[in-house]
Every structure is written in structure tokens, then in C-alpha cells.
Design a protein around this nucleic acid. Sequence first.
DNA 1: CGGATGTCAGTCGGACTGATATAA
DNA 2: CTTATATCAGTCTGACTGACATCC
Lengths: 153, 153
Amino acid sequence: MRTVSPVERLTQSIEDFNGVFIRIPAADRLSFSSLSVLHTLSRAGACRLSDLVRTEQIKQPALTAAVAKLERDGLVRRSPDPDDGRASMLSLTAAGRRVVSRRHAARVDGLRRLVDRLPPADRERLLGIVDVLDRIVELAAEPEHESHDGDAR
Amino acid sequence: MRTVSPVERLTQSIEDFNGVFIRIPAADRLSFSSLSVLHTLSRAGACRLSDLVRTEQIKQPALTAAVAKLERDGLVRRSPDPDDGRASMLSLTAAGRRVVSRRHAARVDGLRRLVDRLPPADRERLLGIVDVLDRIVELAAEPEHESHDGDAR
DNA sequence: CGGATGTCAGTCGGACTGATATAA
DNA sequence: CTTATATCAGTCTGACTGACATCC
């Protein structure tokens, strides 16, 4: 039996936890990718399509189609970029923001049911981890000093 | 400005964290659903198709197709269920286990790069959360009574 | 027979590659 | 002219619904 590092055990636990966390009723007729676009726009604010190409896991033509559908559904708005005639700025409409917050609320609700059943000490430890998670998200956005390549996908 | 509960803040942080955590190179020509099937089989061991229908987010016919492809690719094996002539038992092949552990290793690697950059105290707190996450996964699998604690582990 | 388990058939949305228009 | 931004065209995988075979 080989040694398992702490980070490996943490990764395993997060993978399993996400199996629970991610499952929420679909309800909206939106694909995984479209929901991800809405979430990104909610987090990062107005973006250009080429910005989304970097964060989303799909190629430009698929993103064009996804955004076109979101616009038809009234969840995303496009305005011309004043500084660059080629590009449009994408942002959420009020209806788009509602979709994001409705799904967020469903996750809060599901997680709360579970957290409420934890022993109080565990509950406190879990809730106290928020700032560390936020710090990790910040670190991931930073340039990362000693990177060896940037290939992705 | 309205009040934000601790669970709401935690949910938000996990959502954002997952944006970082989930992004790993695709490499294998496998769909999201197929990867989820492999992960479930890895976690739960041999299953019948109807068991997977409960855990996966797709309907039975789509699962039939997905499993057929995984079998063609040599990642999943089917054996007849001795107790039930209608059903097959599904399990991972060695190649299937390798796919799961390769992806796991990629996540471990990505997470380690970030965890290494945390202040030591934060790192300890994060790694110490593993048992709470595991407990939540257990709770989610239980029929939902409402007692905190119940068994050791 | 009625209820479960699994597959088949037809359709459709969403993703890919490769080529193309327009502006910087 | 070359590069960046975005879209168009054609193809293919993978999901759905509804019908069906098979076994408890």
C-alpha cells in the first residue's frame, strides 16, 4: 500500500464532494456551457467573446452559437465595444442575473441541509474555510511566477 | 445591502473554487458523462446500469450508449449478473482505472501548485477539512433523517 | 400478467474543424 | 500585409422521447 499525500486525499474528497454539490435540478433549458457562461459573466462582469474563449471550455464558434442563443432567450445583452469595432461587450440582463441567483440559491439550500446535520465543531471548521478558498481562487488568477508552458485545453 | 449567511458565502466560494478546480486538460476523447461514469464505477465498484441511472445525470438510453462506447474503448467490462438474467454487472478494466487515476493525478498536481503557495496556517486548515467533506458525502448518501452524528468512522 | 431492466429508432441541440468577412 | 475578432458551413457525437424485447 503506497503513501497518499495530504493534497491527494484532499483532491479525492473534493472530487467526491462535488458529486454531491453539483447535482441540482436543471429546470432551465440551458446547457452546461451556457450556464457556465452566465456564471462567468456574473462573476467577472462585462466581457468580450474572446475573453470567454479563455475561461470557457469550448471553441470560438461554439461560443458564438451559445451566446446567440442566450441573447435570443433574453439572458445576455450585447453592446458594441466603443474602443474596438470588431468586438462586442457581453453582459447579463436582469433575467440572466435571476437565472444565476436561482441556481445559486438551489445550491445554498442543498448544502445547508447537509451542513445543518454536521456536528457543530465540524460545521464551524467548514464555514471557516471560506477565506482560504477565496485565496486559492485569487492565486489561480495570478500570473504564476515559474510557469513552464501555457498550453491548455 | 442584504445579509449573507455563512452557508451562502461558503456556497459562493465553492462555486468559484470549482471554476479553478475543474479545469484540467481533456486529453482523452471522453465526454463529461463518460468520465462521470468512470468516476462512479471507481468509487462505488461494480454496478448495474440501473444503479448508474440514479447517480448519473442522463437517461437510460443515453447511458446504454455511453457504456457501449466505454466497452468498445476497453475501459469498462460487462459480466452477466448471476442473480438476475436481465442485468449486467459493469466494472472498470485496468485501462479504465488508469484513465481515472490519470485525471485524478492531474487535479492533484494542479491543486498542489496552489496549495503550496498558501501561508502554512491556511494550508493546514484546508488540508484538515478532508474529514468534514467525507462526512458530508456520507450524509448525502443517507436517507436524510435529522440527527447530527450517528456513527463513528 | 404486471413491473423492472435494458435496448432500438428517430430526432435534435450543441460541439468540432476549416474557411471566411471585417476591423486593428 | 498580418493579426485579432467573430461568424458561417458542414459534420458528428451524444442527449432526448417513445416504442419495444426480455426476464423477474
